[in-house]
Nucleic acid binder design. Structure first.
Lengths: 203, 203
DNA sequence: ACCTGAACACCGTTCAAGT
DNA sequence: ACCTGAACACCGTTCAAGT
C-alpha cells in the first residue's frame, strides 16, 4: 500500500488520539487542526472530511469523554456489589480521578458554547446524567426530610445536589483551588451529608 | 485635546470594559486584542502597554471578576443582619446569579492554566475563598458529626464542601445541565444539608 | 511614557483540482 | 470518497520608529 493510503479509514481515530494527548499536555488552546494534520502526516485540509470545523473536533472529544466517564462510574457501581458506602466512594473517586487526569477534557465536556451543546455531545451528556441518576437511586437512602412544595421530587433533588457537589469538587480541583490530598476526606464528608456515611466501626 | 490623546490614562479601563461586554456576548474565544484596539480607536499594538499578552487581559478580567463576586457575597451577608437562613440564601443566590449573568467570566476565573494562576488572579481568588470561609463560619452551625481522623478541621471541611456544592451548581448552570428554575429549590436543599434549613413555619 | 506601522509566523476556513 | 495545494482573512507577538 502507498504511504498516502495509510490513513484510509482511521485518520479520524488517529487525529482524535493525538488531540486527546495534546489536550492533556497543552489544554484546549493548544489544539490546532493544522498541527494535528502535520502529526498525522496529511495535508492541513485533510481533517476537514472528519471535522469540518475546529468545534467539531472539540465536540467529538467531549462526546468521547462523556462516554468514558459514564462507563467508568457504571463499572464502579457494578464492582461494589451492593455495599452502598463502598459503591458511593468508588463512584465518587472515579469521577474525581477523571477530573484530575483529564481536567482540560472535563472542562471541554461541560463548556456549552452559548448555552447549547451540539447534539452528539448533548446526547452523551444525557446518558451520563442518566447513569448518575441510576447510581444515586441505588446508593443514597431516601431523604429524611420531605421535599418542600417545589417542582422537583425528593429523588431528583438528591440526584442534582449530589451531582452538583461532586462536580464542584472536580471543578475546584481542576482550577487548583482544592488539593488532591483533601479529596478522600471531602468524599467522606459528602457521603455523610447524603446519608452514605462511613461506618464508625470501620475506624 | 487631540483625538489621539483621548485615551491617555484610561485606555486600560476602556479595553477592560469592552472586553467584559465581548466576554458576555461571544465568550472567551471571541476576545481579540486587535478587535479591542479597533473598538478603542487605537492601533493594534497600543494595548500592549497594558496587556503584553492576551493572557494578561484574561487575568485582569478574572481578577476583576473575583473582586466583584467577593464584594457581592460580603454585601449580602451584611444585609441579612444576623438571620442565618436569610443570609445563606442571599449569599448562595448572589453567587449563582453571578454565574448566570457572567458564565464566561466565571469559567475564566476558575480556569487555571496548567494548574497555576497568575499572582494577581491567585491573590484575588484567595480573597474570595477567605470571604467564603468567613461567611460559612457565620452561617453554618458546627457540624453534628465529628470529623474523622483526617487533616481537615470540621470547619474547613464544611467550608470546602459548601463552596464545592455552590460552585458545582453554578458550573452546571453555565454548562446548561441545570435550569434556572431549579435553583431556588436546590439552594434550599443545600441549606437543609448543611443545617441552614428553611423554617417549616414559613411554609 | 505612549502610540504607530510594518513585519513574521501561525491559524481556521474555503475551494478548485487531483486520484 | 478522500486528499492536495493555493488562497483569504484573521490573529498574537515583536520591533524600530515617531511624538
Amino acid at each position: 500500500m502507498s504511504a498516502r493510503a495509510f490513513h484510509h479509514g482511521n485518520l479520524r481515530a488517529e487525529i482524535l488520539g493525538h488531540a486527546r494527548a495534546t489536550l492533556r499536555e497543552a489544554g484546549e488552546e493548544g489544539l490546532s487542526l493544522r498541527q494535528l494534520a502535520r502529526d498525522a502526516g496529511v495535508s492541513h485540509a485533510a481533517p476537514r472530511r472528519h471535522f469540518p470545523e475546529r468545534q467539531d473536533l472539540l465536540n467529538a472529544l467531549a462526546e468521547q469523554g462523556f462516554d468514558e466517564l459514564t462507563a467508568s462510574i457504571a463499572e464502579q457501581l457494578d464492582r461494589a456489589g451492593g455495599d452502598r458506602v463502598t459503591a458511593f466512594r468508588a463512584v465518587a473517586r472515579s469521577y474525581i480521578d477523571f477530573a484530575i487526569r483529564d481536567g482540560a477534557l472535563m472542562t471541554l465536556m461541560f463548556s456549552a458554547k452559548n448555552g447549547t451543546a451540539a447534539v452528539g455531545v448533548s446526547a452523551a451528556a444525557d446518558r451520563f446524567f442518566a447513569a448518575v441518576g441510576t447510581i444515586v437511586a441505588a446508593v443514597v437512602p431516601s431523604p429524611s426530610a420531605p421535599a418542600p412544595s417545589g417542582v422537583l421530587s425528593d429523588a431528583l433533588r438528591a440526584q442534582l445536589l449530589l451531582a452538583s457537589t461532586l462536580h464542584g469538587i472536580a471543578s475546584l480541583l481542576c482550577a487548583g483551588r482544592l488539593d488532591a490530598s483533601q479529596v478522600d476526606e471531602l468524599i467522606d464528608g459528602v457521603g455523610q451529608l447524603f446519608g452514605v456515611g462511613a461506618q464508625p466501626a470501620v475506624k
